[in-house]
Design a protein around this nucleic acid. Structure first.
Length: 541
DNA sequence: CGACTTCCTG
DNA sequence: CAGGAAGTCG
């Protein structure tokens, strides 16, 4: 059976409905390929984009918001309330948007609180997530209150909520105070320095000056940005280490004893094999990270393991810059930071990286460009690749001077807690995404297998997956909407095997067993690929 | 018990 | 895609 578009119900509109986040106008672009690296990169781009957008706004906003003076009882609360007012809309028709904003806000607040926490307060980071949850619950509760009669609200819980909210406010206030002090410190330092320089320059050229405060603010911003960037970078490292490990571990969903052998040995291929081994040579992706820990495992379902393995490899030598306009000369670090300040961390700035590898992978630039039109990267995207996780590790290394400056101003201590909370959030989110991707794959398999049975297919040999199959289109819409890469034949093979497994199981009514899918998972996980030796080498550390 | 996954729901 | 419940594993 060939699940062609005309034969099945999974038409484009339905696919679009299923995948609102990947919606695009053209559904009939030529089907290209999957590439796990791009998938990872998509995920991280979005993640970092979101995180940095939130963080950027928060970090750079907080000091100035209270520049007029710190008043814990009024200013912060008012600012908080104003922010609440501006961010949240409680119009009925905007409820979904409002909830979304609330969730975002909760994350931001979590991060802010993380910064406010003392470096030794391990428990605080823990409680921060709890606080965010409480806050989110509170927000939901408040919405519900608007609809319900007031007397239905227990007074005790209300008091508790007020107490929690107050604690959060106080925490934020402490943070604001700290930031204010640091601002004034940096400001004074830079102002006096610039004054000296200005005096000297005036003597020489009589040129009027007065850029001291601007410079101070710029330095401060750079410090903040650098710290933020560095933190994000390290967070991404951590995420990838955790993510790749976890996803490989769960690549054999079956936990039955007879599966142990499979779990010990790295399977050869999997439905995650979105590229075959040959194409995998080309699968090194711009988003690659590094870390102190040895990376030995990789994604299984949605993301090809070897690709992920390469995803944790440093994409470029330390002395090289990933920021490059096309293949032109690398940008100076100051340009990078300048760009970050001007256009934000998620702005379109970093194009193809300059690694010699990219020459071997002309598709990369193609893939990057294709993202332009795909709309994946959000409405703000106007260029190619964002300044995001792709480049952050590099920024980290290049801004050592600013970093030390930040250390001197004790940003490090704040940063530790910040990182911790941040890591937790971003990790869980990424894991969730990959989990969702895996889920989608199997859901589609089951769905189309059932459809085949309904369509009267009797022989499992008649079940096939081709590039013309509607099943393929559905998957491609999900994983490779912009057709960033050529889907390897191997993926089709694995998808077909999976579909046949589902078909057979359902045909034999095995789906009456609650754990009937485990047997299928067991088969599929054996199709996983080995982790490349390169990936295990110390050079990936 | 923490980390993760699957399943379900919105 | 996100959140949560429930189950699994080390």
């Amino acid at each position: 059976m060939n699940l062609s578009p005309s034969e099945h119900s999974m038409d484009g509109s339905k696919a679009e409905h299923l995948l609102p986040c990947f919606r695009r106008s053209a559904f009939d672009e030529p089907l290209a390929s999957y590439h796990s690296g791009s998938i990872i990169s998509h995920l991280l781009r979005k993640t970092i984009h979101n995180k940095l957008t939130s963080l950027d706004n928060s970090l750079l906003y907080l000091p100035s918001a209270n520049a007029s003076g710190f008043d814990p009882e009024s200013n912060s609360a008012d600012d908080f309330a104003r922010e609440e007012q501006s961010c949240l809309s409680f119009k009925d028709e905007d409820l979904s948007v409002s909830e979304h904003l609330q969730a975002k806000r909760a994350r931001v607040e979590n991060i802010i609180r993380g910064m406010a926490a003392s470096p030794n307060a391990d428990g605080e980071a823990e409680s921060e997530c709890e606080a965010v949850r409480c806050r989110r619950d509170l927000l939901k509760e408040n919405k519900r209150k608007q609809r319900l009669p007031q007397h239905q609200e227990p007074k005790t819980s209300k008091d508790e909520e007020c107490h929690k909210l107050k604690e959060q406010l106080q925490s934020m206030q402490r943070l604001l105070h700290q930031l204010q002090e640091k601002i004034s410190h940096v400001h004074d330092q830079n102002y006096s320095e610039s004054e000296e320089r200005e005096d000297a320059r005036s003597e020489l050229s009589m040129e009027p000056g007065g850029f001291g405060s601007d410079r101070a603010m710029k330095n401060l911003k750079e410090t903040l940005k650098c710290e933020l960037t560095r933190t994000v970078s390290e967070s991404v490292d951590t995420v990838f280490k955790k993510l790749s490990t976890s996803l490989l571990n769960q690549s054999s969903p079956c936990h039955s004893p007879d599966c142990s052998e499979t779990e010990k040995r790295i399977p050869e291929d999997s439905p995650s094999d979105l590229s075959d081994s040959e194409e995998n040579v080309n699968s090194r992706h711009c988003f690659e990270s590094h870390g102190p820990e040895h990376q030995t495992e990789a994604l299984s379902l949605v993301v090809r393991k070897p690709s992920l393995s390469q995803a944790v490899k440093r994409p470029f030598p330390l002395h090289q810059t990933p920021f490059q306009m096309g293949y032109s000369a690398p940008l100076h670090d100051s340009q990078i930071l300048e760009h970050l300040l001007k256009y934000g961390p998620h702005s379109t700035f970093c194009l193809e990286r300059s690694s010699p590898d990219s020459v071997e992978r002309p598709w990369e630039s193609l893939a990057m460009r294709s993202k332009l039109s795909s709309g994946h990267l959000g409405q703000h995207q106007t260029g190619l690749v964002s300044v995001d996780a792709l480049c952050l590790p590099h920024i980290k290394m290049e801004c050592g001077d600013l970093q030390s400056m930040a250390e001197r101003s004790s940003f490090m201590s704040l940063n530790i807690s910040f990182e911790r909370s941040f890591n937790r959030c971003i990790t869980s989110q990424l894991i969730k995404w990959f989990s969702n991707f895996r889920e989608f794959f199997y859901i589609q398999m089951e769905k189309f297998a059932r459809q085949a049975i309904i369509d009267g297919v009797n022989d499992v040999k008649d079940v096939s997956v081709t590039r013309e199959s509607e099943l393929f289109r559905a998957l491609n819409m999900h994983y490779n909407k912009a057709n960033d890469f050529q889907v390897p034949d191997r993926f089709l093979e694995v998808a077909e095997v999976t579909l046949q497994e589902f078909f057979s199981a359902i045909s034999l009514s095995k789906d009456s067993d609650p754990s009937w899918k485990k047997a299928i998972y067991k088969v599929i996980c054996k199709l996983d690929s080995d982790v490349p030796e390169d990936f295990k080498s110390p050079s990936y550390l």
